[in-house]
Nucleic acid binder design. Structure first.
Lengths: 175, 175
DNA sequence: ATCATCCGATTGCATTCAACAACCGGTGGT
DNA sequence: ACCACCGGTTGTTGAATGCAATCGGATGAT
């Protein structure tokens, strides 16, 4: 659980004998079976609690893996832990700015998968819609995420996420 | 080594009991410690042979892992194997169109890493340059890769890759 | 006060994956 | 004949992952 720093400012802490290549370091941090899937569920699914993430994910992550990933992501500065007023031992996980800036990456990931892999059509629609929206749509989405995760404001019902969700539900209804 | 099909056209082979989410399927395929690093070395390093990939990578992949990844990537339709005329048992690995279309993803990966992780400054420069070039630069780079990997033409000395390499070497010399 | 339920995890166990080092047979140049 | 090079393979070890069962504390209804 050695964590890279979450601060973009300080350069040159320099890795010991490792690589230092941006692609390699990112893969080292996020290149496993679950990290990005968990972040996807927090971003697009709006799930902020352990049980939500455990159950509502389509893939069925094991609870020990989820716990390990959450700890790692918090340590890496991609998630923050907060007490939930409604239940003393309930914990809320929120995205940090670093995680929110993964939106373009997740977008590309989804777009590529929708293009080259045998995806479920209804699920592919969201990815395609977001990719087709371009950087402008990505920025709007990131602004929404900042508002809800960083400033605690409610999600707009006319926002990007709402639009994506509606498109998905429409596809499910039609299909 | 069960491989998803490399054809974008045929939809609806539908995964058996799995997920179907574009992000999840892409993570399932590429979300490990080495797959993207190998592709990075083929794309940016121009390495097409086993020994090159084994030695010239900064990270030092083990030979058995490299062999396994190459087989997997070929099976997944991201690389193709070709005999090398210069040596009967030399094998050349070339990028496919599917792999070339990972350029935007690799770009985002590098940009995010350069922004949020303790990268080596000289290596970060390439990532930042490519990201700053936007989709237009990405397209030019992809065109270069198609020319060399798909059509067998030589790399232009005034191309994107040459420019990135020069920027890197300049940074090394100055630093 | 009791009890079922929900909360974020933890434990134990089996399987898979990655790292490391040694080695293989075929090839090509000298 | 020699030897460096070619794309791998083999064997071993420790780490990561997947799965099922379970934990102790908190909560709410009865």
């Amino acid at each position: 659980m050695d964590t890279p720093h979450p601060e973009p400012a300080d350069r040159l802490p320099v890795p010991p004998g490792k690589s230092g290549c941006p692609i390699n370091l990112t893969v080292e941090l996020l290149g496993d079976r679950w990290s990005l899937v968990v972040l996807r569920d927090v971003m697009f699914g709006g799930h902020r609690h352990f049980r939500e993430l455990l159950g509502h994910s389509v893939e069925g992550i094991a609870s020990n893996i989820l716990a390990a990933r959450l700890t790692k992501l918090v340590g890496a500065g991609l998630l923050t832990r907060h007490d939930d007023p409604s239940h003393r031992q309930k914990i809320e996980y929120r995205l940090t700015e670093a995680a929110i800036e993964l939106v373009p990456l997740l977008t590309q990931l989804g777009a590529w998968g929708a293009r080259w892999l045998p995806t479920t059509p209804e699920l592919a629609i969201r990815a395609q819609l977001l990719a087709r929206g371009g950087p402008e749509m990505g920025e709007r989405f990131m602004a929404e995420l900042r508002a809800t995760h960083l400033e605690g404001r409610p999600l707009p019902s006319d926002g990007v996420l709402a639009e994506l969700t509606r498109a998905y539900e429409r596809a499910v209804a039609e299909g």
